[in-house]
Simulated scan of single mutants.
Amino acid sequence: MTDEEYRELLSRFRNIRAEERSYLDALKKRGARIAGVFCSFVPLEILDAAGLCSVNLRNGEESSILLSGEDLPGNLCPLIQSGYGELFSPRSSCMSFSELVIGETSCDGKKKMYELLAEKKELYLMQLPQGADRPYARKMWIHECRRLLRELEKRMGRTICGEELRAASRARNSYRLARLRLMQLLRRIPAPLSGEELFLILEGTERLFPLPGRISLLCELTAYLEERSRLLPEERERKRILLTGCPIGGVSEKTLRLIESAGASVVCLENCGGLKEVCPMVDIDREDIMEAIADRCLEIGCAVMDPNRRRLDRIRELSKEYRIDGIVDIVLRTCHSYSVERFSVKELSEGLKIPYSSVEVDYSRSEILRLATRMEAFLELL
């Protein structure tokens, strides 16, 4: 890959919505069957083995929130409002291309939204246990995964064997490892790419390429950036920020871009879409591959889990691994789980002697100036 090809790729990813619709339309014309998901807890290995293409319904569009207004209250999480609002979008979207939505009871807002969604779209709902440390929680989730498998076998009209699940798990592990290796490049000082570039690449490869193409492109990008990093000076210039909290699709401009415009470097994305969902891998050598798939999901350190020690342990590890100077906690407005968990993350940051800032945002553009001032003030403390 050349510098010019890299710049062209980032430009494509910055205009991802229009190209994503073209990509999905081409998939449909080739006979692909598409399922939409909102959450990392949905076991995508099962969908892959069934022959379904999975798409991410976390679209981050402010315009979609306006379309959800008659059905959903205005003081609901923007991620939920935006995803639901895509039902009514005049433009083709991931929601319209999905023949099935696979939901999960990760939070109360989504759980009740799914009740409304089921009246307008075919929905399959997985009951997610929210106390991952309880023995019966694991048994329940394994049962839910087996139940999903049976549903997809019925829908696709065929039996899905253990070797198909194992092959799908191996491919997903390869994809997660490719994402992880790219993200680990930012451990270097200085980082060979910005946090904004990293986010564009992670989102773009996810939305515009089939799984084998994603792996190939990520490996090519990692090799290119590794080579480019050898030409960078070794001195440490910018303060290094770890971003944690809610998914940042829809608020990346108000978080990543503002932080980096103020002179820092976002080197670690711990949140959903970043390291949170890639680090647990499926143990493909386990005798019961379905149990291995289910166990991987329950290792995700999401704030919906109680207790959520995994997230705190992970932030502690990443702060050392990425040599972090400051922690910024992103909370989507009215996301109660992450909002309450801010206190635990702040306490952890104080114990690590790392400055901490919490930012509560939605998908509107109206507060950019206020947030810019706040980020500049935080970085001055560093």
Rank of each mutant, 00 (worst) to 15 (best):
C279Y: 04
F343I: 10
L256F: 10
F38V: 04
K112V: 03
S93Q: 08
F378Y: 13
R146C: 00
L231K: 14
E8M: 08
G74P: 01
L202N: 07
G195L: 02
E20P: 01
D306E: 07
F97Q: 05
L352M: 14
S169G: 07
A167H: 01
L57I: 06
I102Q: 01
L348Y: 01
R179W: 03
T105K: 13
W141N: 02
L180A: 10
Q127R: 14
L79R: 00
S63I: 06
I300C: 00
L332Y: 04
A32Q: 12
G83Y: 01
Y6G: 07
R370P: 02
L128H: 03
C219E: 15
M375W: 13
T205C: 15
I16Q: 03
I293G: 06
A118E: 14
R238T: 00
R257D: 05
H336M: 14
K276A: 09
K254Q: 15
D329P: 09
L182Y: 02
L312V: 07
E61Y: 01
N59Y: 08
P129Y: 00
I201H: 04
K111W: 08
C161Q: 15
F209A: 02
E260C: 09
T2A: 03
E20H: 10
S344L: 03
N75M: 11
K276V: 06
G195N: 08
P90K: 05
L208W: 10
G36W: 02
L318K: 06
G162S: 14
N173P: 02
T373P: 13
S339C: 10
M156D: 13
E226V: 00
D325V: 08
I189V: 12
C297H: 04
F38P: 00
R188E: 15
K120R: 12
C145Y: 05
K28M: 11
M290Y: 05
I160H: 02
I65Q: 12
A132R: 00
E62V: 09
L269K: 05
G85Y: 00
V359Y: 03
A303K: 11
G109Y: 14
L165M: 13
R150Y: 01
R286V: 01
E153H: 10
R207H: 15
E380L: 02
L379G: 10
L52F: 15
P90Y: 05
R370Y: 06
M281Q: 15
R214F: 09
A167L: 11
L218G: 10
R172T: 09
R187M: 05
P192Y: 09
S366P: 06
K110E: 03
K154R: 15
C335R: 06
P307W: 06
D48L: 15
K320C: 07
R150A: 06
K254V: 14
A303C: 13
L117R: 07
F38L: 07
T205Q: 12
N173K: 04
E227G: 13
A50P: 10
T105P: 03
L218P: 13
L182V: 03
Q81E: 12
L10R: 05
R187A: 08
E260Q: 11
C107V: 04
L202Y: 11
L218T: 14
G74W: 13
R170E: 12
L193D: 00
S40L: 08
L269M: 11
M1P: 14
K139D: 01
V304H: 08
E227H: 09
E62D: 12
M113S: 04
S252E: 15
T244W: 07
H143T: 08
V101W: 00
S11V: 01
M375A: 14
L185P: 02
L217A: 07
R172E: 06
